[in-house]
């Protein structure tokens, strides 16, 4: 297999891993003030993501830096064309990081509500913006030999907004299922109940997105080359149904596995549709940025591949270990009511 193809797969996998991991952090971040009935509950919920959010976010940094190293032309165009999207994303991610860590220390009494709102918003925005980003990638960006002809408002088209909604709903379900696995007592039921309720609009939006994708984007082209590939989006749909079935069967862990599978198969379907394009042009397909014309030199690709084969297993290894260390559910009595607990 050509180096560029291998790197396209790794590139896609990095996105998938990021969404799998940060998906539940963003989801739990959007939900926690609504699940919690008091500040003690809030602390418990925050503690479910406290030890892991930081490491999860690094996968996004890895996507950014990896794109830079392996597909420098795509990195340069993507980030400069979608400047406002990434700027908003940056703001949200910075504010989210700060609010997770400093919520307790910074704002006492009256401010806590505001701070909760800030945290919800800064969890919502990235989820939504990633949806908008991929919506636009699926549609293609308006650029040709002269340059970019888009604007921020054009990025907010109907299809992309719908993708934004899909990501938000998907992460909400994913996040509430994750939370339900890390806590005890009545809070668990609230989380599972929430997952069940959000599942309904998720199915509706997913159905519309899948139909629209096959009609309005060129992603279908890849599937025409081999009809067997259609199993991937089908698996996404099956996994979506499985969430509800496992919830009914009171198997929350399997439901979480299913929501992970939805993310995995949905994103994979998207990447299959894109391949070999990284950024398709919506006006002139001859200017599509592909894994071939946007890649770094073969030598650089090889160096990066060798280091990846050595270090990704290591990273994955100690990440699994970290999750293993915190495998136990958080008990209500573990979290003190005093301020600045947890740190």
């Amino acid at each position: 297999m050509e180096l560029q193809n291998i790197w396209f797969i790794i590139w896609a996998s990095l996105w998938v891993v990021y969404f799998l991991l940060d998906g539940f952090v963003l989801g739990a971040g959007m939900l926690y003030p609504f699940l919690a009935k008091d500040s003690h509950d809030k602390k418990i919920l925050l503690k479910t993501i406290g030890p892991v959010w930081d490491g999860n976010e690094v996968w996004l940094i890895m996507v950014g830096a990896g794109t830079f190293a392996v597909f420098p032309a795509a990195y340069a165009l993507l980030f400069s064309y979608l400047y406002p999207v990434f700027l908003l994303l940056l703001f949200a991610l910075i504010v989210r990081g700060v609010s997770i860590e400093f919520r307790e220390e910074l704002f006492v009494r009256g401010w806590r509500k505001t701070w909760d709102g800030v945290f919800v918003l800064s969890s919502f925005l990235p989820a939504f913006l990633f949806g908008v980003l991929f919506g636009n990638l699926f549609l293609g960006l308006p650029f040709d030999a002269i340059g970019y002809h888009g604007s921020f408002l054009r990025l907010l088209n109907g299809y992309s907004l719908l993708m934004g909604a899909l990501f938000v709903l998907l992460f909400l379900v994913h996040g509430s299922l994750y939370a339900s696995l890390k806590i005890t007592g009545p809070l668990t039921h609230t989380a599972l109940h929430t997952a069940r309720r959000i599942w309904i609009p998720l199915v509706a939006v997913m159905a519309i997105v899948l139909v629209l994708t096959s009609f309005t984007t060129r992603l279908g082209d890849s599937y025409r080359t081999s009809y067997a590939l259609i199993t991937v989006p089908l698996l996404a749909v099956l996994a979506l149904i499985a969430i509800r079935m496992f919830l009914a069967a009171k198997k929350p862990f399997m439901a979480f596995v299913s929501s992970s599978a939805v993310i995995l198969f949905f994103m994979t379907s998207g990447f299959i549709g894109l391949f070999p394009n990284l950024i398709p042009s919506s006006i002139d397909a001859s200017h599509n940025l592909t894994a071939y014309n946007a890649s770094a030199s073969p030598y650089a690709l090889k160096i990066m591949l060798i280091t990846s084969f050595i270090f990704f297993p290591l990273v994955i290894g100690y990440t699994i270990w970290a999750y293993y260390v915190f495998r136990e559910r958080i008990k209500a009595e573990e979290v003190s009511d005093e301020t600045s607990s947890g740190y």
Partner: peptide
């Protein structure tokens, strides 16, 4: 980018993961 992106990617792969995963373990562990 061919030459400049490499060290940045390696920084993330070799060190950011190390720092960020273990800082979580350290604080809560």
């Amino acid at each position: 980018g061919d030459i400049f992106g490499g060290p940045l990617a390696l920084e993330t792969l070799l060190t950011f993961f190390l720092e960020s995963v273990f800082i979580g373990v350290w604080i809560f562990g």
